[in-house]
């Protein structure tokens, strides 16, 4: 059923540390409309349902087709990309709120830098010798490619972080996303040395042991990345690595 308008409740916060509040908006409906179009409508005319003038709601977005990960927010309580959140599939009033596991910058904008910092910490790269012509890369079976490709689609959107019960103020768990990346890079035939460094780091603060096996991450991933497979696989790698390391240690 086409509706004439879309109602939204938006959690507003003027800046880091500011006190949040809720505002109610109504915008025109159109077929195929997504949450971002609603937010643009609000920016055009920032007036609440009660007729009170307010400031435009701030949100992050870029690609608008669910490949960049920028526009993740809580839509009716679930973390998802607001670009692919079509209003016709949502119960109204649509409730929009910022992710809760990251510091709020303003309104629906949060700071997810810690996810990129995790990639630094876990050496999420292939250690190439240089960008000069050095011949072809390693052969890779089509099957392994499919696994690597699945892991490589992670757009650092933070859905898995948001639903993970082990990520909160009382735990320093690095989260599922980066573990998927560790598996992705460990699958690359670029030498065991880097793999050892990644696994060693995985045994450090907030490492893989903090996973509580709730398996929410895999259910929340919009790109259907087999995060729990990755976690178990890296768990296995860490087990073997730790035992070997202990047996060989001087």
């Amino acid at each position: 059923m086409a509706q004439k308008t879309v109602q939204l409740r938006v959690k507003r916060q003027d800046g880091p540390g500011a006190r949040p509040r809720w505002e109610h908006f109504e915008v025109p409906h159109a077929p195929g409309k997504n949450v971002i179009s609603c937010l643009i409508d609000i920016a055009r005319k920032p007036v609440t349902l009660e007729g009170r003038e307010t400031t435009p709601v701030q949100w992050d977005c870029a690609c608008l087709e669910e490949v960049c990960g920028a526009c993740t927010m809580l839509v009716n309580g679930k973390p998802q990309q607001s670009c692919s959140s079509l209003v016709d599939n949502l119960e109204q009033p649509i409730e929009l709120a910022p992710l809760t596991k990251f510091p709020v910058v303003r309104d629906l904008v949060v700071d997810r830098q810690k996810m990129f910092k995790n990639l630094e910490r876990f050496r999420a790269w292939v250690p190439i010798d240089g960008t000069y012509p050095m011949g072809e890369g390693p052969l890779l079976s089509a099957e392994d490619q499919q696994v690597r490709y699945n892991r490589s689609r992670c757009m650092t959107c933070a859905c898995c972080m948001e639903v993970c019960p082990q990520i909160n103020g009382r735990s320093d768990f690095v989260g599922p996303a980066v573990i998927g990346q560790v598996e992705f890079f460990n699958l690359h035939p670029s030498g065991p040395e880097e793999m050892g460094k990644r696994l060693e780091e995985m045994m450090g603060t907030g490492g893989i042991h903090e996973c509580g096996n709730a398996q929410n991450c895999v259910a929340a991933c919009p790109k259907e990345i087999d995060l729990t497979d990755a976690i178990a696989e890296v768990g296995r790698q860490v087990t073997i690595f730790a035992v070997k390391k202990f047996l060989h240690s001087s």
């Binding site: 890369g137 490619q145 890079f185």
Partner: peptide, 13 residues
Amino acid sequence: DLLSRMGVPFNRT
């Protein structure tokens, strides 16, 4: 070749 060395999961034969 460079991209492949960097680990881009290109589809394979």
